[in-house]
Write a protein that binds this DNA or RNA. Structure first.
Length: 871
RNA sequence: GCCCAGGUGGUGGAAUGGUAGACACUGGGGACUUAAAAUCCCUUGCCAGUAAUGGCGUGCGGGUUCAAGUCCCGCCCUGGGUACCA
């Protein structure tokens, strides 16, 4: 064995010195894993599979941030652990590379986003390698790769044909000075109103033609599917609240003196008798029709002001209710009462029907509004004394709880739940009410007026030509049409063989001044001829083919990240999104690690697409992510969020240079629980550096030979052996539960103990190195090799805990008097209850505290505690 | 406001209802060294005491229990999310 050490079989000694030299060791092993494809997953290998997925990064020009390695270290360690345990592990990585910063860089420099992306990806990849993350790079994907976005486009095509996509005018932020549409995050809320982040120009809401996906049709399925997922409860609740399903009723009110009527959504039809006024939102289409002459100045002035407010401003002003009477009144369908219709911006056009019936006695907001404008408040639910009232018996706040109905005609006496049904039934007779379900969730705005995104595989044709198009290219149930350049056009899908529909080369990445995508200027690409039978396209006219123009919007960044986890399983398949056999073999991620900031949007969109693909028969199970874990955030040393402006950003490369990747990895995991938000502290890494040096010395003696203490005995001393096996047990359990901080503590205890032992066995030292390997793989591989092994430690398996070694002959029993510690003693492990209590009572300090008191009770928790209760 | 997470030494944190502070960092003292680095040893919650030991102590106030950081009730504070959802 020692000779092996002097002549390592496949590599020169990493270092000339005898000290732990991470700067020499780490690149060597990073190279080794790459050369030997150590962590490449083999399809259909006869082993249990484990698929671990990280949220893939956006390869920004700024490079890796200390936040990235936190979650990635956890997944890399878990992968190495699972492989050692005998699993066929899939742990891939890729790039979510469409995105705003790259596009803006292109606008500024004229450099094609493709080139910027390639540079950034190379940079990211190098940085990830430096940290020792050994991904299966043979499965690398990039959302901007046409071979990848071919299938993103294909999925959209299925959504379109299934009737889940439509086109609508939707308001978006538009900046006339910049001549471009802005994302929410590019808009600042300032005292002067909304302004662009770049240039600080005024921005406004402008309706623009957009693709929208009907995610609301999956609201029920998305809520129901959450039930069996192994996700943090808080994340499940967040999604549930975001979807916001509520059961209620739509009720229709006649408007006095007008042919129109007004439909509202309410969750409390039982309170209908208490409706004393109605409110419509300032954007409501009926507003102009019903507003009286006398009120028109006030109403339209109010509506105009509301329009210029951003959502945020509207919300901030919420403390004070504002509104104006429209001059119109409505008839309550249940009792014929005439009630005023107001307009107020606390009612939103985007939820329900954009109008409400106000029941001030039983709704907090309605109550405040009624107080502000001295409107009637009629209590119709008996509060049984639960509500706060003044001396005259008038409500001081809304009573929102349940109860029996009062002041409600024939419904009086019924309880809320019964009355809800009864009221709807009564209204249904005259078609004045129906039970409905409403979602907070809104349909998904799925297009961007930008260059750097997936083009839509859609062509627009005239109404006459649409009739000639093969039905398989259409959204048959719900044809999609809109006005383009003043003409009615219909959307048809291209043939699948046209995919991927690549981005055209353009002269400028700047949107056109009217807010249209840069693609709208790519004339040659834009205007095409379409074979109505097949959906094939041509840039030259062909007999029997029809004129068409391409969709100029592109898809949002979410599109590519909605399904990437499926593609890793079968990354190069050109004929299908995913091969069925491979899907069956690998399944979906067994563990998905990523930040909580994606708790709703990304995780909801991905689930939506997955459900649709399941309904289409493409996939075999409706839920993609069975188990989810959110890593926390690393704060700066000042305890604040890391940001350039605060100057508290920690650069991973600096740490690697000073301490090595293994130290950084261990320290990131040692800072605290993986899910916690925790501040960085550069000084603290010293403890980890010491731990690594001690681990090194366990194997390598000061003169560079192997530690002479190893193999000088057949058996470790009992205490060291017990701690070693306790460590195997604890570390194994902690890795399974992603409790890396406590696993590291235990390994520290173990190395401290083994360092003190006079004689060591080879087996003991090897077991320890195996435990260390997932978190500190470079040093572990090096030591493994130095100990004479020719294979990677990745192939070395996992140590088994020998439970018999954990058993101790004696146990420490704590003595308490009235629950307070008063001493302890080492007693035989199998000590009887009586003996333990006797031992306690004979203890000097126990006697002192019991003396002069009566013993009321004696409690013995086997092997742990004796508690004497004495008064 | 609502929803979520959290509050433990000088610091990061540990603790199936069973000795609160494991493991580290920092600080203090010492050994080795010409010196430094590295390494090793002791010490480090607060108060009283030379010590033995005693008292206090997990945001605050109650409660359950032989026993509470942990469970229950009511507050306070911090961080994150969200924005009047009828």
């Amino acid at each position: 064995m020692q000779t092996n050490l002097l002549n390592p079989p496949f590599s020169k000694m990493a270092t000339q010195t005898t000290d732990y030299d991470f700067s020499a060791i780490e690149p060597k092993w990073q190279d080794f894993w790459k050369q030997h494809a150590t962590y490449h997953a083999q399809d259909f290998e006869d082993k249990p599979t484990f698929y671990i997925l990280d949220m893939f990064p956006y390869p920004s020009g700024a490079g890796l941030h200390i936040g990235h390695p936190e979650g990635y270290t956890a997944s890399d360690a878990l992968k190495r652990y699972k492989k050692a345990k005998g699993y066929n592990v899939l742990h891939p990585m890729g790039w979510d590379a469409f995105g705003l910063p790259t596009e803006q860089y292109a606008i500024k420099t004229g450099k094609h986003p493709r080139e910027t992306t390639a540079t950034n990806v190379d940079n990211f990849k190098a940085q990830l390698s430096q940290l020792g993350f050994a991904y299966d790079w043979s499965r690398e994907i990039n959302t901007t790769d046409p071979g990848y976005y071919k299938w993103t486009q294909w999925i959209f095509m299925q959504l379109f044909k299934k009737g889940l996509a439509y086109v609508d005018e939707k308001p978006v932020w538009f900046c006339p000075d910049l001549g471009t549409v802005l994302a929410n995050e590019e808009v600042l809320n300032t005292a002067e109103g909304p302004r662009s982040e770049r240039g600080h120009f005024p921005v406004e809401r402008r309706p623009i033609r957009q693709w929208v996906l009907r995610i609301t049709e999956y609201g029920d399925k998305l809520i129901a599917g959450l039930k069996d997922l192994d996700w943090p409860d808080s994340t499940k609740r967040l999604q549930e609240n975001w979807i916001g399903r509520s059961e209620g009723a739509e009720i229709t009110f006649d408007i006095s003196g007008h042919a129109a009527d007004l439909t509202v959504f309410t969750t409390r039809p039982d309170t209908l008798f208490g409706a004393t006024y109605m409110v419509i939102s300032p954007e409501h289409p009926l507003l102009s029709q019903i507003t009286s002459k006398q009120q028109s100045t006030a109403v339209f002035g109010y509506a105009e002001k509301a329009k210029s407010k951003s959502d945020l401003e509207r919300a901030e002003l919420s403390k004070e209710k504002t509104g104006v009477w429209t001059g119109a009144t409505a008839i309550n369908p249940i009792n014929g009462q005439e009630i005023p219709i107001w307009v107020a911006d606390y009612v939103l056009m985007t939820y329900g029907t954009g109008a409400i019936m106000a029941v001030p006695a039983h709704d907090t907001r309605d109550f405040e509004f009624a107080k502000e404008f001295s409107l009637d408040i009629i209590q119709v639910i008996d509060d049984n004394g639960a509500a706060k009232k003044d001396n005259s018996g008038a409500l001081l706040e809304a009573y929102t709880g349940p109860g029996n109905l009062i002041n409600s005609g024939e419904q009086s006496g019924k309880d809320s739940e019964t009355a809800k049904k009864a009221v709807i039934e009564e209204l249904a007779i005259d078609q004045r009410g129906t039970a409905t379900i409403n979602f907070k969730l809104r349909d998904w705005l799925f297009s961007r007026q930008r260059y750097w995104g997936e083009p839509f595989p859609i062509a627009w044709v005239s109404e006459a030509d649409y009739a000639k198009v093969n039905n398989t290219l259409k959204s048959m149930e719900r044809p999609v049409s809109c006005q383009i350049d003043g003409e009615l056009r219909f959307a048809v899908a291209l043939t699948e063989s046209e995919l991927p529909l690549a981005l055209p080369e353009v002269e400028s990445y700047t949107p056109s001044p009217d807010g249209q995508s840069p693609l709208s200027k790519a004339d040659a690409w834009l205007h095409i001829y379409l074979d109505p039978a097949t959906g094939a396209t041509s840039s030259e006219p062909i007999e029997g083919w029809i004129n068409a123009s391409r969709e100029t919007n592109t898809m949002p960044q979410w599109a590519g990240s909605c399904w990437y986890y499926l593609r890793y399983v079968d990354p190069n398949n050109d004929t299908a999104l995913i091969d069925t056999e491979k899907e069956k073999y690998w399944g979906y991620p067994d563990l998905y690690i990523g930040g909580a900031e994606h708790a709703v949007l990304h995780l909801l969109y991905a689930r939506f697409w997955h459900h649709v693909l399941y309904d289409l028969g493409v996939l075999s199970d409706p839920e993609p992510f069975k188990k989810l874990f959110h890593q926390g955030i690393i704060l700066g040393e000042d305890g604040e969020k890391m940001s350039k402006s605060r100057g508290n950003v920690v650069n991973p490369e600096t740490i690697i240079k000073d301490y090595g990747a293994d130290a950084l990895r261990l320290y990131l995991m040692f800072l605290g629980p993986l899910e916690a938000m925790k501040p960085w502290n550069t000084k603290g890494i010293e403890g980890i550096a010491r731990f690594l040096r001690k681990s090194w010395r366990l194997v390598v003696a000061e003169d560079g030979s192997i530690n002479p203490k190893i193999s000088t005995t057949d058996q470790l001393d009992t205490e060291s052996d017990r701690i070693l096996h306790a460590t195997i047990k604890k570390v194994t359990e902690d890795y399974e539960a992603l409790g890396f901080n406590t696993a590291i503590s235990q390994m520290m205890i173990c190395v401290n103990q083994l360092g003190k032992a006079d004689a060591l066995t080879l087996e003991a030292v090897e077991s320890f190195i195996k435990l260390l390997a997932p978190l500190a793989p470079h040093i572990a591989e090096e030591l493994w090799q130095l100990m004479g092994h020719t294979c990677s430690i990745a192939e070395a398996g996992w140590p088994e805990c020998d439970k018999s070694k954990l058993v101790e002959d004696t146990i420490k029993v704590i003595f308490q008097v009235n629950g307070k510690y008063r001493g302890d003693a080492l007693l035989p492990a199998n000590v009887s209850k009586g003996d333990a209590i006797t031992a306690a009572k004979n203890h000097e300090r126990v006697t002192a505290h019991v003396d002069g008191k009566t013993i009321k009770r004696e409690i013995y928790v086997p092997g742990k505690i004796v508690n004497i209760v004495a008064i």
